[in-house]
């Protein structure tokens, strides 16, 4: 590994101060490279970071300066939305991670041909717009949708089942959306487990079940955590699927925020909820970063 590549690695900041100082003296030589990063950086600072900070600012200043907006977080309507969001996200995360583990395990240990087919099954949905996916679920789940008409046609139900515009519909749509995000980090983690450990366990007399639960499963915990945190965070901040499949009834935080802004024009409350959402995500990531490399989680490494 060359020195510069090494320097680009995350461990760089932990280096000895003398090395840092030496590098700083070379800044002049690097002027050209600063020119390369400048346009993108300036754009992001102006049109991404500044608006983001503006959201924080508004939450403390509108309609009047102070913490008034944050006191509203305890109001019944906000706590109801928060609880709905939390419930839906936890259920989604648990179901997604269990299914993702199943798929990742079989994917990683499948033959080369099966692996290729499964790869397509896992990443094709990732490339399809959330709108198209929500539309597909609507055609399946609504009152006179394909599932209800099939069940009624088979004489299994008398009245259509309520599958859409409720929490059930939202969870189905979310699990479908999040599964690839759950599977990919888990599969990466399962791939790095040394297979000879399982052979050793078997050789020492452990049953299949014991080998899995006492050797394989504990070794895959970092992957489970990575997958769960990614799915949970994405679910918390996701707008399209909950808004379309929830039909305004089981409203989650993102839809509630947009209503505050677009319909009732309460910027103070809207931005306060947005800030709270970011804070919760930051807190979760801070806790998880103690056990995981976050850049790896977001594909930056």
């Amino acid at each position: 590994m060359s020195a510069l590549q090494d320097a680009a690695s995350p461990g760089y900041l932990d280096r000895a101060p003398s090395q840092l100082r030496r590098r700083r003296f070379q800044l002049g030589d690097n002027a050209a490279f600063y020119v390369l990063i400048a346009p993108a950086t300036v754009l992001l600072l102006t049109f991404y970071l500044y608006p983001l900070l503006q959201v924080f600012w508004i939450s403390f200043t509108e309609p009047k300066p102070g913490f008034g907006n944050y006191a509203l977080l305890l109001s019944p309507s906000v706590t109801r939305v928060a609880l709905t969001t939390l419930r839906i996200c936890v259920i989604t995360t648990v179901i997604t991670v269990v299914l993702a583990y199943l798929v990742a395990y079989c994917w990683v240990h499948a033959g080369p041909r099966a692996q290729r087919v499964m790869l397509l099954g896992i990443i094709l949905p990732l490339w399809v717009s959330a709108l198209v996916r929500a539309f597909a679920w609507i055609t399946l789940l609504r009152r006179d949708g394909l599932i209800n008409s099939a069940l009624a046609g088979a004489g299994l139900i008398d009245a259509p089942l309520p599958l859409l515009w409720n929490e059930f519909g939202v969870v189905v749509g979310l699990v479908h959306y999040m599964l690839p995000y759950g599977i990919l980090p888990l599969a990466a983690s399962l791939r790095s487990i040394d297979g000879s450990l399982m052979l050793a366990a078997r050789g020492l007399g452990a049953t299949r079940g014991q080998t899995f639960s006492m050797v394989y499963l504990p070794l895959s915990i970092p992957g489970i955590v990575a997958s769960a945190i990614l799915v949970f965070i994405f679910s918390l901040g996701f707008y399209i699927t909950p808004a379309l499949l929830g039909g305004g009834r089981s409203m989650m935080i993102t839809e509630y925020i947009s209503i505050q802004i677009i319909e009732v024009l309460r910027w103070g409350l809207g931005t306060t909820l947005a800030v709270t959402l970011v804070m919760i995500i930051a807190l979760l990531l801070a806790v998880v970063s103690r056990v995981l490399d976050l850049r790896k989680l977001f594909g930056a490494k």
Binding site: L52, I58, I281, R295
Partner: peptide
Amino acid sequence: RLLMLLPMIVPTIVYVLGFYRL
């Protein structure tokens, strides 16, 4: 690089409020 991670982590609904005002 850290700055570049932000848009992947922060929900779009949060960003769009500030961007609208800008």
